[in-house]
């Protein structure tokens, strides 16, 4: 559990005079489920964009999957997976076309894409659905597929940005089981959510407020520290000044 896959020290990100990320320091380990929580506007998206190589820090050290966020952002992109609820798959492409497209974007060889395609369809019991349009799939299936596609190139880390928003309670729980299963294979899962019960499933959580990380620990320890019955209570105590 001690291999660091994300290392952030004194990260600052400014937009003009606005400080979106104010001196963040944290580490995330291999195979960990790390919950990244905070109120709307706290600065989470800014951090995730930096960690996934889409934006450069203003100052501070950031290393993701062994690569430096200033000089090696392209390598970071190749070694992470990303999925969000709003957009992940192209709705007007088929299941197979999406998989092939993403394989190409990740720079995988044609033979490797072909091999992973077969495995993936088999694992999801999707063999009969490979030529179906994404827009024809129920939301739950779409989400499972999007998660598998984010793991297509076997990244060390996968970022999930509100992956379960609006999903029914059974599918939401099935999705978390795949998260558990993924983490048990040693892949780090970095996840944001507004469902506070899901925060309890994480190994550790951080809570951001106004650009700063104000709490970071296991759910159990945070509940003890803030004398709260649930993570939701902790969250409300921290985010409501």
């Amino acid at each position: 559990m001690n291999e660091k896959v994300i290392y952030v020290k004194n990260l600052v990100k400014k937009f003009g005079s606005f400080v979106a990320n104010d001196n963040l320091s944290f580490e995330v380990y291999a195979g960990e489920i790390f919950g990244f929580l905070g109120a709307n506007g706290a600065g989470k998206t800014t951090t995730i964009r930096i960690l996934s190589g889409l934006s450069k820090p203003t100052s501070g050290e950031v290393n993701v999957a062994g690569y430096d966020a200033y000089r090696q952002s392209e390598l970071i992109k190749k070694n992470i997976g990303y999925m969000c609820q709003k957009f992940s798959l192209y709705e007007d492409l088929t299941v197979k076309e999406n998989i092939v497209l993403y394989g190409g974007i990740y720079g995988m060889s044609k033979s490797l894409i072909g091999e992973r395609l077969v495995n993936l369809l088999e694992k999801l019991h999707f063999q009969k659905d490979e030529n179906r349009m994404i827009s024809d799939l129920p939301l739950g299936l779409r989400q499972k597929l999007a998660f598998s596609v984010a793991l297509l190139h076997e990244p060390k880390i996968v970022f999930l940005d509100e992956p379960t928003g609006g999903v029914d309670p059974i599918t939401r729980r099935q999705f978390w089981e795949t998260i558990y299963e993924t983490a048990s294979r040693g892949i780090t899962v970095f996840v944001t959510t507004h469902y506070m019960d899901e925060a309890e499933y994480c190994d550790r959580i951080s809570i951001m407020n106004e650009g700063k990380i104000v709490a970071l620990d296991t759910p159990e320890n945070l509940k003890k520290q803030y004398d709260a019955a649930s993570v939701e209570e902790v969250f409300i105590k921290i985010a409501r000044p």
């Binding site: 905070g38 109120a39 709307n40 928003g165 507004h194 939701e232 969250f235 409300i236």
Partner: peptide, 13 residues
């Protein structure tokens, strides 16, 4: 219609 979707727990409350 879904006024609180995607909104954090504090703002929802």
């Amino acid at each position: 219609d879904e006024p609180t979707t995607g909104v954090d727990a504090v703002s929802r409350s």
